[in-house]
Computed example of a mutant assay.
Amino acid sequence: MPIPEDVTGDEIDKDVRQELQSLPKTLAEDVARNLVMAGRLIDEDPEGAYGYAKVALRLASRVAAVREAAGFAAYANQKYEEALGEFRTARRMTGNVELWPVMADCERGRGRPEKALEMAGAPEVHKLDKAGQVEMRLVAAGARRDMGQLDAAIVTLQSPELASNSVQPWTARLRYAYADALLAAGRQGEAREWFAKAVEADRDGSTDASDRLAELDGVEFVDALDESDSENERGHDNERGSEATPATAADDDRDKDNGTD
């Protein structure tokens, strides 16, 4: 797959670069450049990211960082079985537990929310950092919702991290998930309150909390371009109407001649 010349491979995380030092220099550079492309595209073009990740995997399948990148690329494309396999391999190679929440979410994607809940109660969760534990809580709540257990999902999200007024990297997503669960349970007033709190914490636009809040408030957004097109269309309609008047009058005359009203 083509890679822009300005992508050198030096853009990757230093820890990943260190892992790649086990490879011959030229090969390491090729793998790094493909990983950079995968990282750049994973949000806007998941299929493209998947393609670059697969190239990196073919070149360096014994590097844990490559396995992890391939897992996230597969995950972004909803290839949950494949993603889980890559994450498991990466975990075996490193012994790290940080992938545990996303592995549990892959189980949800495979239609196995019960397995995700089982993982949420596993000893590995206690080894996660705070961000990982919050992520695990989000996955567990999602699994509860998958099983139709809305009240349990709401209770799962209730935590010191949710109640805290401090804004952390996970705060917006946690508040958003709580608001969404409340709304699904028919608790619209509380949902609105928490969507508003999510907006306050969402400094980088990681959620659509502002849109959800506006929707609850009955606010409709009109695209300026669409509005302009509509005005132009109305103008064309008026022109067509003026041009059609003589024909309409002639039709009226024919109707009179035929004895019709």
Rank of each mutant, 00 (worst) to 15 (best):
A152E: 05
A153V: 00
A153Y: 00
A153Q: 03
I154L: 00
I154A: 01
I154H: 00
I154P: 00
V155M: 07
T156N: 01
T156K: 06
T156Y: 02
L157D: 00
L157S: 01
L157M: 04
S159D: 00
S159F: 00
S159Q: 07
S159N: 07
E161K: 08
E161A: 10
A163Y: 03
A163S: 08
A163L: 07
S164V: 05
S164D: 12
N165S: 15
N165I: 07
V167N: 08
V167S: 11
V167I: 11
Q168K: 14
Q168N: 13
Q168Y: 13
P169L: 06
P169W: 04
W170R: 01
W170V: 02
W170I: 02
A172I: 07
A172C: 13
A172G: 13
A172Q: 04
R173W: 03
R173K: 11
L174H: 00
R175C: 09
R175N: 10
Y176G: 08
Y176I: 09
Y176C: 14
Y176A: 09
A177W: 01
A177Q: 08
Y178N: 00
Y178Q: 00
A179H: 05
A179C: 12
A179Q: 09
D180V: 06
A181W: 01
A181N: 07
A181L: 09
L182D: 05
L182S: 05
A185N: 14
A185K: 12
G186S: 03
G186A: 06
G186D: 02
G186R: 02
R187G: 10
R187I: 09
Q188I: 07
Q188V: 07
Q188K: 11
Q188R: 13
Q188A: 14
G189Y: 09
E190T: 02
E190F: 03
A191L: 04
A191F: 06
A191G: 08
A191E: 03
R192Q: 14
R192I: 10
E193N: 08
E193S: 13
E193Q: 10
W194N: 04
W194Q: 07
F195P: 05
F195A: 01
F195W: 03
K197M: 06
K197T: 05
A198E: 01
A198K: 01
A198N: 06
A198S: 05
V199W: 04
E200F: 12
D202R: 03
R203C: 12
R203G: 13
R203N: 12
D204F: 08
D204E: 13
D204S: 14
S206C: 12
S206Q: 11
T207I: 09
T207E: 08
T207M: 05
D208C: 05
S210G: 05
D211V: 05
D211P: 06
R212Q: 05
E215T: 02
E215K: 03
E215S: 05
D217K: 08
D217Y: 00
D217H: 06
D217F: 02
G218H: 03
V219D: 00
E220Y: 08
F221K: 13
F221W: 12
V222F: 15
A224N: 13
A224P: 14
A224M: 12
D226H: 15
E227T: 14
E227R: 15
S228L: 10
S228F: 02
D229E: 14
D229V: 13
D229R: 15
S230Y: 08
E231S: 11
E231T: 12
E231C: 04
E231I: 10
N232R: 15
N232W: 15
N232F: 14
E233Q: 10
E233Y: 13
G235Y: 14
G235E: 15
H236F: 11
D237N: 12
